[in-house]
Amino acid sequence: MSTSGGQTHPLHRVAIVGVATTEMARRLDTTSAEISLRAALTALDDAGLTPADVDGVVARWPGPGGTVFQPGSADWAEVFGQPLRWVCDTYPQGVPGALDAAAAVAAGLCEVALVFGGQAGVMGAAGVADYTRPDNEFLACWGSLTAAQFALVAQVYRHRFGPDPEQVAAVAATIRNAGHRNPAAVMAGRGPYTAADVLASPLVTEPFRLLDLCLATEGAAAMVITSIERARDLPRPPVTILGGGAEWHRQQYVNPPRYEEVWPLGADAARRAFGLAGLTPADVDVFGLYDINTYEVIRQFEMLGLCGEGEGAAYLAEVGIGLGGGHPTNTDGGLLSYAHIGWGGPTLKVVEAVRQLRGTAGGGQVPGAEVALVTGAGSGAQYHNVMILGRG
């Protein structure tokens, strides 16, 4: 893959060579540090590498210059048993984490970068996770949950375009049914779901009903990134990063999102990512979209230009997002039905994309998948990121 000038882009010299997830559950009897380390070691084993090979880490970093993280008295360099050449904890998950790691490897700052994270032992008995209740002076006093921030955007969309409620609900039902069929999903065996089930579930924040909203669970995920040259000597087929990009509109969950500003959020990042890959959205075989709610999935297909504004629900009903559809989406059950694990949630999207491109996604495998799109965040959060992966 080359740029127009014939020069290979640095990202194209990097590959994902190992991925892993731990068990997923509503609550696990361990700690965030332990579950994150377990995912990291499993990903290294998947890559045919050991902790001694790691010289770069993208994770919540409790060491020098890092953030507070359990247990706070140790750091990953000590855990892995050697100093590290490069560390990043700015956004240590999902697409931004992968792109940061890839850039570091391409620049020679490290040779093997490990991206990992998750949570365990933090979900209490309350029905709402702590991290969905922003604790800043503009929101805390009103009790505005993160779901309500996304609902502000979805309400405007619904008022302007009046999408068919059953077509909207069918998006959630399809993704939840992927989780129903996935034995590793938190919601495994809990379906099958219909659009009527979604519409009959309790109202949480207009227009979202319970089955429109993602899970809040525990577990961890990890990925290993290295050069394509080194990847050729490893046991797993490499998955290459064909393109990527991000848009950071403003700090999340402070100023309320305005529809005009955030409904198209990510379009520029997607254009840049597909331009770098030399592809278009029509070339994508499997979509790993950040499905924090149903409307956000619809929004992203419109943002990608696969249909017009206001047309997403009808378009997806026609094309299909299940395994047999034209746009297979969130084939593991996504955040709606597989898991959403805090500091590892966005990485789950990358892990499933890698498994799809390897052909190891089990019952959710898309036959012949060669190009995968992964996204993170969305309109209510006021930032978005995009990454395109391909078979090595």
Rank of each mutant, 00 (worst) to 15 (best):
E261N: 12
E261A: 15
E261L: 14
W263D: 05
W263V: 08
P264T: 09
P264D: 05
G266A: 10
G266D: 08
G266C: 03
D268I: 11
A269M: 09
A269N: 06
A269S: 10
R272D: 12
F274T: 00
L279G: 11
T280C: 09
P281K: 01
P281C: 09
P281Q: 04
P281D: 11
V284R: 02
V286T: 14
F287D: 02
F287N: 13
F287Y: 15
G288L: 12
Y290K: 03
Y290H: 14
Y290E: 07
D291W: 03
I292A: 14
I292W: 06
N293L: 00
N293G: 00
T294V: 14
E296N: 15
I298N: 04
I298V: 15
Q300P: 02
F301E: 10
E302H: 06
M303H: 03
L304A: 01
G305A: 12
G308F: 04
E309A: 13
G310V: 10
E311N: 05
G312E: 10
G312T: 06
A314N: 04
A314D: 13
L316S: 05
A317R: 08
E318Y: 00
V319C: 11
V319D: 04
G320Y: 00
G320N: 01
G322L: 09
L323N: 07
G324K: 01
G325S: 10
H327I: 07
H327A: 13
T329P: 11
T329F: 10
N330G: 04
T331I: 14
D332P: 08
D332W: 05
G333P: 11
G333Q: 03
L336M: 15
L336T: 04
S337Y: 11
S337F: 06
A339V: 08
A339E: 00
H340C: 14
I341V: 15
I341D: 01
G342V: 06
G344P: 10
G344W: 05
G345E: 13
P346F: 06
P346L: 03
T347I: 03
K349S: 14
K349T: 11
K349L: 14
V350Y: 05
V350W: 02
V350I: 15
E352F: 07
E352W: 07
V354Y: 08
V354L: 12
R355E: 13
L357F: 07
L357G: 06
R358V: 08
R358H: 15
G359N: 01
T360Y: 06
A361P: 11
A361V: 03
G364P: 09
G364M: 08
Q365L: 13
V366A: 04
A369D: 01
A372K: 09
A372P: 09
L373M: 13
L373R: 04
V374W: 02
T375I: 10
T375N: 08
T375F: 00
G376W: 04
G376A: 15
G376T: 14
